[in-house]
């Protein structure tokens, strides 16, 4: 069987298109590359959607945590503490458990025990908490002069936030937020490794890498392939976030732009 044929058969296997049965005997390098790559679809799915949705909650959390009103501040503080203070492993376990129990009482929660939704919710909350903390840190270091200038122009409330505070916050937080994005994509490999089940052998890249490691008894091929894909993905993320970073800093003179790149890199 040619490698092209393999790609046709297994390229979309992780979302249920193609051959039903996974390769079992005389496994080729091409099959390993194709299936593990196919599993990356799920890693990208979880990462992109969780980041895109988590971003908004994170902004809200950062503002709430910086608020003077206890009623906003306390819940945000607790939420961030809970999700940043515990391993994702344990969060997945409790989420699965919780969704199962809710499913019994409310049929609405039916799809939540499947990984595509349940694990996504956990990753969404998790990244919101981490990014919320990063944004909160950035919010605190916005230069006082910027806000005073906005006041002087008569900007208040929403327009001041949207046009002055929010862009500055993003600009300051961006290097750390890039790191958070990388970590989130890495964390997506835990989905099928912890509590959520894989249906019909449709799993993420780590699921297929483990499948091959189990079938060939040789961990030195599938895991480096997985690593290769993730290095590519990480480079893509860094490139994409770098473009946005450029746009965020486009109003600054080039000299200062270079300096913001040197800001300490916050990690999650």
């Amino acid at each position: 069987m040619s490698c092209f044929q393999t790609i046709q058969d297994y390229g979309l296997r992780s979302i249920g298109i193609g051959e039903r049965l996974l390769p079992k005997e005389s496994i080729t390098l091409c099959e390993q590359f194709t299936l593990i790559g196919s599993g990356m679809i799920w890693n990208i799915y979880y990462g992109v959607i969780a980041l895109a949705t988590g971003f908004f909650l994170a902004t809200a959390l950062a503002v709430a945590k910086g608020s003077n009103r206890r009623i906003f501040r306390k819940p945000a503080e607790w939420f961030i503490f809970l999700f940043r203070g515990s391993p994702l492993f344990i969060q997945f376990f409790f989420a699965y458990f919780l969704f199962l129990n809710l499913k019994g009482t409310h049929p609405f929660f039916g799809p939540f025990t499947a990984a595509w939704l349940g694990a996504l919710v956990v990753l969404f909350l998790n990244t919101a908490a981490y990014s919320g903390e990063i944004f909160y840190g950035a919010l605190r270091s916005i230069p006082k002069g910027d806000v005073e200038a906005a006041d002087a122009y008569g900007m208040t409330g929403w327009s001041r936030f949207r046009r002055i505070i929010w862009p500055t916050m993003l600009r300051l937080a961006w290097p750390a937020y890039t790191n958070e994005a990388i970590f989130l994509f890495h964390a997506t490999t835990l989905v099928y490794f912890s509590s959520f089940p894989a249906w019909r052998q449709k799993g993420d890249s780590l699921y297929y890498a483990r499948y091959f490691a189990d079938k060939t008894f040789n961990p030195f091929i599938p895991y480096p392939i997985l690593a290769f894909y993730f290095i590519l993905l990480t480079l893509l993320i860094i490139g994409f976030f770098g473009l946005i970073n450029k746009r965020l800093n486009r109003h600054l003179p080039t000299e200062r732009r270079a300096k913001t790149r040197g800001l300490p890199n916050l990690l999650r």
């Binding site: 079992k24 912890s194 089940p197 249906w199 052998q201 799993g203 483990r210 499948y211």
Partner: peptide
């Protein structure tokens, strides 16, 4: 259980396989 002979058997039988760690 993921990656057991039982999982392989269910996959071949045509039933809907659900794998746990």
């Amino acid at each position: 259980q993921t990656a057991t002979i039982q999982a392989a058997h269910v996959a071949e039988s045509g039933a809907m396989l659900v794998e746990f760690a």
